[in-house]
Nucleic acid binder design. Sequence first.
DNA 1: ATGTGC
Length: 467
Amino acid sequence: MNGKHISKLGFEKKAIKLALDAAHTREDAGVSSAEILQELQAVQADPAAYLRGGVYADLAAELSTQQGVKRAQQAADLRPSALPYRVWGEDLIDPGAHAQMDVAMRLPVSRAGALMPDAHVGYGLPIGGVLATENAVIPYGVGVDIGCSMMLSVLPVHPDELGTDEAKTLLMKHTRFGAGVAFEKRDRLDHAVLHEDTWKEQPLLKHLHPKATEQIGTSGSGNHFVEFGTLTLHQPDLDLEAGTYLAVLSHSGSRGFGAQVAGHFTALAQKRWPTLDRAAQKLAWLPLDSHEGQAYWQAMNLAGRYALANHDLIHRRLARALNVTPGAQVSNSHNLAWKQRVNGEELIVHRKGATPAEAGRLGLIPGSMADPGYVVRGRGNAQALDSASHGAGRQLGRKAAANTLAKKDVQAYLKDKGITLIGGGIDEAPQAYKRIQDVMARQDDLIDIVAEFRPRVVRMDTGSEDV
DNA sequence: ATGTGC
């Protein structure tokens, strides 16, 4: 017996030496070469049967490992072509977002998907992408800002009663913007979410609890905002008469806490599938029934609740400063994954920049800093996996916006719409976004419009270049 | 999107 005989049987790497060692032991015991070759083939066919002991146990263990790796590699293979998915507002969507969705629909774990009319290129799954998977959760299918969400509060104050200067003062005093920002210690508010036992159940969550505590109630950066505006209902709804109301609208997420959760688990997911096609690397998933998948699911949902708690404190502070109690409130997460029945199967539906729109469910779709946003009610469109757009969607990337838009045009647009802006950058200019009216027109089979919100005084983080 | 990583 020599290495050649062994290699011929198809043993690879470390298994060659282990097979050879075992074969020599058998030769010494007087077994014929033909019989040994047969025994080796039997081990190869069913290594699990030889794991318990005997001369072939080490070989069987090595073969089991090798076969496991091979199975994992095959499990990571992309489908040759994308599963079909429906697109809303095809004419508004750039080819890059389509290409990203096509890759997502080639994942072995994907079952269904849809693209919303605000779709544009993102990290992994496009923004505006909806993806249903089986027993798999994709950290970048949820996004870096886990639980990013919207909240609107109707305030029992006539819109004309709040002057622009007072609105500005309130926003300056009670909201905090910028990467890394926290509330000053003496101004911090507590929230039930910070006292959940969940924080104690993972070292990562335990580690992030202090950051979450100091940042709660803040708004962060990028496209996040807090604004006062006027809500118009053309007919009674939301337990309100038809009419105009003062309202607060906020867009915020899970801040540093969620970002770190996203980074941690996407690294684990990418490590899990080392042979995953390059194009799909940022779509690496965790099996939901794995330890890591369960840990992500727990952390993701905590980040979702934390983000809503941020809104809750933002609205609570502003209402308290106006000495009122908020009336109707609407909120929804638009970066999250949910368990959902799709075609009779329980799947994991990822919405990355998409509004849940089950039949009857209320949601919020903002336009831009100077354009109307909408309170909507879902129509439960099955092909859209009960989803709608999460906003107007970018038309220009941040760099393109800064390079092509002129400050004076942005200022003119704001003036024309009667918008007072605190902070904000050229990369968040209304002209960097698709026309919200176009986007809404492409999804009238996904949602019904309940009310229109017109922003008046808007606060955002200071951008790369001020408007 | 985040205060990170180039």
